[in-house]
Design a protein around this nucleic acid. Structure first.
Lengths: 245, 245
DNA sequence: CTCTGTGAACCTGTTCACAGCT
DNA sequence: AGCTGTGAACAGGTTCACAGAG
């Protein structure tokens, strides 16, 4: 799962910067789902779908329709009653809310097994997430090139991240190095970090950390395997059915 | 982040299989954190720490102490008041609850960029998660060996998964192939799936799916970058330290 | 005294159900 | 009619604060 980062909420309204929609009011859970909706919307747009109802969009995104409508209400969406949402317009709105109208320079630290794969993975290239820099401690890796980007020494993190205006740092180092790397990124002004290392990071208030932890995911599944076995006898193992109500 | 999978809750208690602790009563959120506690506990055990208080353990795991105590109360833990928890005993309890006392055969489908890295990643080897089988569609990859395990054709999924008793399937294919692969795994009796493909999977009731979606994580961070920038002007951009009280 | 375990308050997010627009 | 947007009820999880064990 994902651990929540340490983003500060403003203690008081303190002169709210009221624009069209106040992002501070958008629930965390909604933000996470907006990204999923966006993927579905993009597919629909590619297929020439002009309009979509909350029922259809929700089914495609794997959520319930009421939740989707509430999510969209948070971003000030305007669907048309009796018709649905304009796919193109909604796509733009979601992109705008997620901050995808600008590009984001990504720095990836640790190009070992996993990091190397991530550097080449399509996920980064999409949607304006450009790999601006790669770093590693290993002298054998420093100087090599992955996907056209040269691997630099971690000592360069402060200088390079600051000068390239890196906004997202990805940590794919062993656990032992993670906090140190994190500190370097934060020191260079990187406001958001995606951490693949199995370590708890501490960061100053205002820096957002998200964690992707393979071992944790596996263990959660292991828990459910135990559950499944226990229940198998009672359930009688039905093959294919509804996913949810 | 991680999107929650489609696990069915039993509609009724239906003759509860009451053992020491009823796993149905353990909150999802608690299960996810238990895996984190386990990692910290394992490190402490290795360092020879005998006893730990909820304060210390919570700090190391990055959660608040009351939450940790409540989590542990769900697994029927017995700390000693005025002293703390016995590290060794607590470790065993957590392992037991997570179903880590048995080993789990893992099948990984898709050994491209990411899948290849995952196959070699340490995360699987640890804690009894053995890679029992690898699959791919690409004839150029079928027959090769990764980490001592041969890559088989996806057509073999039903036979091999069933015969090896695979309990956890990992999908690291492109989005387009994910549902089909998922169906094959489910058909072979695999009860838990970890999905790295950017696709919504539908599965029968009782099958647990967890999703790790790189693009979604990046977009959530992008949202926070926008937030961060908007607030920077007012805050005066202080590099490291408290933002407010 | 220290530290756990837990009732109760609280808060966030989900679901329901329907008013109201087209 | 169909479908959105939303108040209100609900559920799940978090935090508080303290009784009580050692």
């Amino acid at each position: 799962m994902t651990v929540d980062g340490g983003v500060s909420r403003p203690a008081r309204p303190a002169a709210r910067p009221v624009g069209r929609v106040d992002p501070d009011r958008i629930p965390q859970a909604t933000v996470a789902r907006l990204a999923v909706y966006l993927r579905v919307l993009t597919e629909m747009l590619a297929q020439g779908v002009r309009t979509v109802s909350s029922d259809v969009l929700a089914a495609a995104a794997g959520v319930n329709a009421a939740k989707l409508r509430k999510d969209l209400s948070h971003i000030g969406s305007s669907g048309v009653r009796g018709v649905g949402y304009d796919v193109s317009r909604l796509t733009e709105q979601v992109e705008s809310v997620l901050g995808l109208t600008r590009s984001h320079a990504v720095a990836l630290v640790g190009v070992g097994n996993l990091g190397h794969a991530l550097a080449g993975y399509g996920g980064f290239a999409q949607r304006g997430f450009g790999v601006a820099a790669l770093f590693d401690v290993d002298p054998a890796l420093v100087g090599t090139t992955i996907g056209g980007v040269e691997v630099l020494d971690v000592a360069e993190i402060p200088r390079v991240c600051a000068s390239k205006g890196v906004t997202i740092g990805v940590i794919a180092t062993p656990a032992g190095a993670a906090q140190q790397v994190c500190d370097a990124l934060v020191g260079a002004g990187v406001p958001s970090i995606l951490n693949f290392a199995p370590a708890v990071l501490s960061v100053p208030t205002g820096v957002e950390v998200r964690k992707v932890d393979l071992a944790v995911e596996m263990q959660i599944l292991a828990f459910h395997v135990s559950r499944h076995d226990g229940r198998a006898a009672a359930d009688g193992r039905e093959a294919t059915g509804k996913v949810f109500g």
